[in-house]
Amino acid sequence: MQAWRRLGFWLPVAVMFVWGLLVLVMHHDTVRETAFTLFMFIALASSLNILLGYTGYVSFGHIVFFGLGGYFGFYLLSQHNWPLLPSALAGGVISALIAGLLGMAILRLRGAYFALATIGINEAARAFADNFSPFGGATGMFIQFSAYEPYGGPGPALWASFIYLWIITLAVILVSYLVKHSRFGLGLLAIREDEDAAMVMGVKAPRAKTIAFMLSAVGPGMIGTLYFFKNGNVEPGDAFQLHMSIEMLVMVMLGGMGTVLGPLLGAVTYVGLRGYLLTTPIFQNLHLAVAGLILLLIILFVPAGAVGWVRSRVPWLRRALE
């Protein structure tokens, strides 16, 4: 059993590690850009999975942590000339703190009420960033060219941001695995299945949920900073896209909720599919509609996601596909 469990952990980690190494070895800008997008979504989906998959709370506005953390990190970076790594870490910490405060309030809501509240918070945050002049209001903030100098110019700076993203993604997967195989994670799973029964069994649900919410916000906050650094600017419209939030949910759903490997598979599949639809002439104009149709079919017929489906069909893989 332990060996299988280790495989469930080593498989995603090894894939991510080798993949990142390959990108570094190939040293090609297009390859790096593709990998950046994929790693970003893998980390975002895995982060969301800690809340959605383990705890069972549907956060529709989870992108708010990407936006707020990214805004804060980018603010330190562009207005106070902090280096990239500390800025990103600060973005993650701020995200987690905001999640902690919000969580204490909104995690009392259940089901669709919680989902609605997260949408409201995302919209409120976007509107706030629109008006908050230290963050540049509606026009947002830009990076001075000089910010790239410590890395030896814009090119190497982009490579640096990729390497940080790679490490963060690995860390998120590690955290996801550790949470799932801990006493704390067992409590989260119990909350997901039946919160009232879990509390009767002694799970401190209010505290556990808040910690899960904070954990799921750290990654997006750090990644937001890296993403906006890579783009060179941040603005409210980019930072708080409700659409991206829902894409994260779709990725988790696609791969399989509550598994470590699921979000990784889901993110790769979704991003790959979107890329294919966008570049294939017949689907180009209808890519959103086709993606919607595929999503609908999955929800109606394979609600457990890819990993869940395999797990229920191939029992000996149950342990491997954590």
């Binding site: 799973l189 119990a190 039946d194 029964a197 879990a198 401190k204």
Partner: peptide
């Protein structure tokens, strides 16, 4: 009120962990 998605052992472990 079993926790459906968890195995029987995991269900009982919740009791042991948080009792």
């Amino acid at each position: 009120r079993p926790l459906h998605e968890l195995t029987v052992r995991e269900n009982v472990m919740v009791g042991a962990c948080f009792g």
